[in-house]
């Protein structure tokens, strides 16, 4: 019997479809990306010439490419994500996790935006930000801020547009839907963590006269630290990789809200510079990896203390 279950040919055949997909689409392209990153390659069938680190030097030095600005934007998003989105998610998770009426209902509603297509969300927020008929401007006018909006027309362009390229608040306007959409995701992870805290631990603390704040601070938050770490990693790497909503809200052309991924796609589409596109992809992966490592170290430090 043993023999039948460890017959090499069968094992190989069972693994074959998964391996083909996995190596062909996930593993090999990583190496290809690294390879193309050292190439000057124009167009899919175009000639390849080895140019060493030239793409990377251009990424770091060229101002016309705008990688520095794009990276800055995504790091700012990461900062907002960790500073606003995660605390909000944590507060919601702590409240829900301790049991309130309608707990499941709240949970499901909070998580719902995560499942909606980012294109749909982007188009919806485009409508919300619409200068004439968007509910944001209609709301501002209805509470008497119409004059303020009118003043901004000269600076921001037509009828005070939130997403215009000259509006310094455009970046913030892009961040709002991104942060809004994923609060529920982080909340769900943290909620699962809060639920996993042993009940007797909480009861003991309560018998000792701990207030709710103390229970949160000294028992639940330390207990769910591994999950908080995962959330922070996701928030930071997710911000670095952000693409969909910025692309939908700001369009394909060069704009002040660019992030590395939109640059990468532009290298493919408009510039046909595949080598440079690959180099940006490699930078992104390395950055995500480095930040994940860094966050791991920071959290480990705290555990020792």
């Amino acid at each position: 019997m043993k023999k039948t279950f460890s017959y090499k040919m069968n094992i190989f055949l069972f693994l074959l479809p998964a391996l083909l997909l996995f190596i062909g689409v996930l593993i090999a392209p990583i190496f290809l990306s690294a390879y193309y990153g050292f190439m000057n390659k124009k167009g899919a069938g175009g000639a390849e010439t080895w140019i060493g680190f030239a793409n990377y030097t251009e990424i770091f030095t060229s101002t016309s490419l705008g990688f520095g600005k794009a990276l800055g934007n995504s790091l700012l998003l990461a900062l907002f994500s960790v500073g606003i989105q995660l605390p909000l998610a944590l507060v919601l998770a702590l409240k829900l996790g301790k049991g309130v009426r309608g707990e499941r209902g709240f949970l499901s509603v909070y998580f719902m935006p995560v499942l909606i297509s980012t294109v749909v969300i982007g188009q919806l927020w485009l409508k919300i930000y619409n200068p004439d008929y968007g509910i944001l401007n209609q709301f501002l006018r209805s509470i008497g801020l119409g004059d303020w909006l009118n003043q901004k027309i000269g600076v921001w362009g037509t009828r005070a547009a939130w997403l215009s390229k000259t509006n310094p608040l455009a970046l913030a306007a892009c961040f709002v839907p991104i942060l809004w959409q994923y609060v529920g995701y982080h909340m769900l992870l943290m909620y699962a963590g809060v639920k996993s805290v042993p009940k007797d631990l909480l009861e003991a603390a309560q018998l000792d006269g701990c207030t709710e704040g103390q229970v949160n601070r000294f028992i639940i938050i330390p207990y769910i630290k591994p999950i908080l770490k995962v959330s922070v990693i996701f928030a930071v790497t997710g911000s670095l990789k952000s693409f969909d909503l910025i692309y939908v809200l700001m369009g394909q052309d060069k704009n002040p809200c660019d992030v590395p991924s939109t640059l990468m796609i532009r290298m493919l589409f408009s510039a046909k510079r595949y080598g440079m596109g690959s180099a940006i992809a490699v930078m992104l992966i390395l950055l995500c990896f480095a930040f994940a490592l860094l966050i791991n170290i920071v959290f480990k430090d705290k555990e020792v203390r």
């Binding site: 990306s33 790497t237 990468m264 595949y274 992809a281």
Partner: peptide
């Protein structure tokens, strides 16, 4: 692995 890692190479392979 983020999908970003493979957009460019897969595009080139598919084009070929």
């Amino acid at each position: 692995i983020p999908i970003h890692a493979s957009v460019v190479p897969i595009y080139i392979i598919l084009a070929r």
